[in-house]
Design a protein around this nucleic acid. Structure first.
Lengths: 225, 225
DNA sequence: ACCTGAACACCGTTCAAGT
DNA sequence: ACCTGAACACCGTTCAAGT
């Protein structure tokens, strides 16, 4: 056997040697980040790792369990914002939520990937702790802090899921054109807001507009307490 | 051939006779409502309709196009709320959004099914017109009305996607238990809000808490205009 | 003990043949 | 013209066999 052949044969073995549930989950996350939910199959992932498909089932009972682990490893690279000026609830919360939004942008499939449960996974508690702290420090009683947190959570996840981060100019134009062909007598309001609707499809400005309204509402609440 | 056999043979033919893109989309929606996204396959749907799988490709180019049509037919049975007391923005908007929420509850997969584009589909404009009208009548200029609409849209869709409508008591208890085992020194805020967090997981009360904060923020905006 | 090929029961879709 | 069976290139997972 030539040296070259030996090298070629060893490569898969090397990759296999370093395998662990965490390695597998990280590899899966990399595929998801690159190619989305449809790009990840057990067979494809196994091939990437240089092992047989069934080897993966030694680390995870099934695909669902692997995806749970993916959420956990993704949670590890949440980068919390620099500590805000103490006492400025609004600045602190805005910086925190922008950080969460940036984290979701780094791992776009997290939003589709059972976002509902993301917050429930132990590893994700680290992401939540920071936000909950801000709410408690601002003066919300625990029960209401939890409700406020959930509202903000829904806004961040919902915005990523339903308001594309960088709205495609083509899609924007298509929407605007579609709105402008609606019958004026049947859809007067949509016709009036057509240009604005295309603008409000998504993006950072739209995210901030919504966040500002929500924070206005929460600060009003704080004044009542 | 016995009469019975004739009847049995005719049944699929009858179903096929009434086939149209709309019929197919309605049948698909029924499957989705009953069994969720994973329950719908082209093969399964064709069998339900008593035709060969490939027949469906005569009505839709591919599955994606079929799902577009499903959104359209689902939009048709949105039930707008009774006209609100004119001039009461808050009451009108609340009734409208509760109606949208009820509509999503009737078709739970709509939320997962490319909710991002739902609003862009022509048939869904009917759902939007009502809400946009309320915002314009309340005094929002068109461009801001569009942003406010999108914020509310994200809240309704996001709540359905990320805050389960009827929180499973089991899941609630599991979350509470998990939170209470977190190390006090590392997760003090989460520990403090543990019981509230389980409560805020979802449900109508949580939806209303968030909506009330958003409407507070929007009304504050109106006062500034 | 650890790994995995073959097999099973599915997919969406293309293509060529059937009526 | 309209419909569709067979085939292709995939899935996740079970099971039994390989080392």
């Amino acid at each position: 056997m030539s040296p070259k052949a030996a090298t070629l044969n060893r490569r898969p073995r090397d990759r296999r040697a370093s395998l662990s549930p965490e390695t597998v989950a990280r590899a899966a996350l990399a595929v998801l980040d690159r190619e989305g939910l449809d790009g990840l199959s057990m067979r494809r992932l196994a091939a990437d790792l240089g092992v047989g498909t069934m080897t993966l089932y030694g680390y995870f009972r099934d695909k669902r369990e692997l995806l749970d682990a993916v959420v956990d490893v993704a949670a590890e690279d949440f980068a919390p914002p620099a500590p805000p000026p103490a006492g400025d609830f609004r600045a602190g919360m805005t910086a925190y939520l922008e950080a969460v939004r940036a984290w979701l942008a780094r791992h776009p499939t997290l939003v589709a990937l059972r976002g509902r449960e993301a917050i429930v996974r132990p590893a994700a508690f680290g992401v939540s702790e920071h936000g909950m702290r801000l709410l408690l420090d601002a003066g919300f009683p625990p029960a209401e802090a939890a409700r406020a947190f959930r509202l903000l959570f829904v806004h961040v996840f919902g915005s990523s899921a339903y308001a594309p981060r960088t709205p495609d100019p083509d899609e924007r134009r298509r929407l605007e054109a579609a709105l402008l062909t609606l019958p004026e007598d049947e859809f007067p309001a949509m016709r009036t807001a057509a240009v604005g609707a295309a603008e409000a499809l998504g993006g950072d400005e739209q995210f901030r507009y919504g966040l500002d309204r929500i924070l206005d509402g929460l600060e009003a609440r704080l004044r009542e307490l």
